[in-house]
């Protein structure tokens, strides 16, 4: 394992995970990952980090807050409560 390679490839890992890295960069990263357990951990846990946040429930405005929003904009006549 070459420290230099780890450092060198680190900057490209997000593009690699997003599928936005060039074919040459992907090949270089994959070659390195085959020999470097540390970088495999970094890539796997970086991917997991993005996934965990992605799967978080999305916060929503509750009904009262929605009603307040419409009122603040003088649009209360257009407010339609959402049926849950």
């Amino acid at each position: 394992m070459e420290q230099h390679d780890c450092r060198h490839l680190l900057g490209d890992l997000s593009e690699y995970l997003d599928g936005d890295a060039s074919a040459a960069v992907c090949a270089e990263i994959e070659r390195h990952l085959a020999d470097c357990a540390k970088c495999r951990v970094v890539v796997d846990t970086l991917r997991k980090t993005v996934l965990l946040y992605h799967d978080q429930p999305k916060p929503e405005l509750d009904e009262n807050a929605r009603a307040r929003l419409y009122r603040a904009l003088d649009l209360q006549n257009f407010f339609a409560p959402k049926s849950q």
Binding site: L10, K38, V41, V42, D44, T45, R47, K48
Partner: peptide, 12 residues
């Protein structure tokens, strides 16, 4: 870009 420090494998 900071070098990763914590290498505990918690992905799986």
């Amino acid at each position: 870009i900071e070098t990763p420090r914590q290498l505990f494998d918690w992905c799986c």
